Simulated assay, not measured.
Amino acid sequence: MRNKTSKKPAPTQEANVIYQHNCTAEDCRPHSYIGMTRTTLSKRLTCHLQNGSIKEHYHGKHQTKLTRQHLDENTTIIDRETDTRQLMFLEAIYIENMKPAINQQTRDLQILLT
């Protein structure tokens, strides 16, 4: 038998995760954002650089440009789920329980059957 030599992937290379970004500006604490991604966390963080609540928060509240380094350093994985439907429910539960200040739902997600 051989020892398992494969390394665990870097957190940013994981998919199907719930993540939390914390704003570390001194005048802002404890603002945070909770999200989920089915793609790698790295790809999702790249999307945050383009638009969305996190980018708007840094631009509007701090008049600063959001950088990839800042996203990488202040984002952590808080849960994992391979079932994508359950992943969406899990994200909603975290948002409801933790009430992150940066999350702003601008569209209605129809995840429940009516």
Rank of each mutant, 00 (worst) to 15 (best):
R80W: 05
K65T: 12
T84M: 07
A92F: 02
R68P: 04
I93L: 11
N74C: 08
M88Y: 04
T84H: 08
T67S: 12
A92V: 07
T82F: 09
Q86P: 06
E96V: 10
D83R: 06
E81W: 03
T67P: 05
K65M: 13
Q69S: 15
T84S: 14
Q86G: 10
T75K: 05
L71K: 09
Q63Y: 03
A92G: 08
T64M: 12
R85T: 13
R85N: 11
L66S: 02
K65D: 12
K61D: 06
H62Q: 08
T76C: 00
I78P: 00
I93A: 11
L87Y: 03
M88C: 09
R80N: 06
E73C: 11
H70R: 13
R85K: 11
Q69M: 10
Y94G: 05
A92M: 08
I78A: 00
H62N: 06
E73R: 15
H62M: 01
H59S: 10
D72G: 07
M88D: 02
G60V: 06
Y94K: 09
Y94V: 04
R85A: 15
R68L: 10
L87K: 02
L87Q: 07
G60K: 12
I78K: 05
I93F: 06
I77N: 06
F89D: 14
T82N: 14
D83S: 10
R85F: 13
E96S: 15
E96I: 14
A92W: 01
A92K: 00
K65F: 08
E73M: 13
M88P: 03
D72C: 02
I95P: 01
E81C: 15
Q86I: 12
R85P: 09
M88A: 14
T75S: 05
T64C: 08
T64V: 08
L90N: 08
D79Q: 04
F89I: 10
Q69E: 12
I95L: 15
G60I: 03
G60C: 06
K65R: 12
Q69Y: 13
R68D: 09
R80C: 06
E96N: 14
E73T: 15
D72I: 09
E73S: 15
T64N: 09
Q86S: 10
I93W: 06
H70Y: 08
Q86W: 10
T84N: 11
L90W: 00
K65L: 12
L71P: 11
L66M: 14
E96P: 02
A92C: 07
E73I: 10
I77E: 00
T84W: 03
L71C: 03
T76K: 15
L90A: 08
M88K: 08
I95R: 11
K61V: 01
Y94E: 03
I93T: 07
G60H: 10
R68A: 13
Q63N: 13
D83W: 00
Y94A: 09
L71I: 01
K65S: 14
D83N: 15
T75Y: 04
T84R: 07
I95W: 02
D83V: 05
L90F: 03
Q86E: 15
M88F: 04
T76S: 04
L66T: 01
D83E: 14
E91H: 02
H62E: 01
L66P: 05
E91Y: 07
I93Q: 11
T64L: 11
L71M: 02
I78E: 03
H70P: 00
H62C: 01
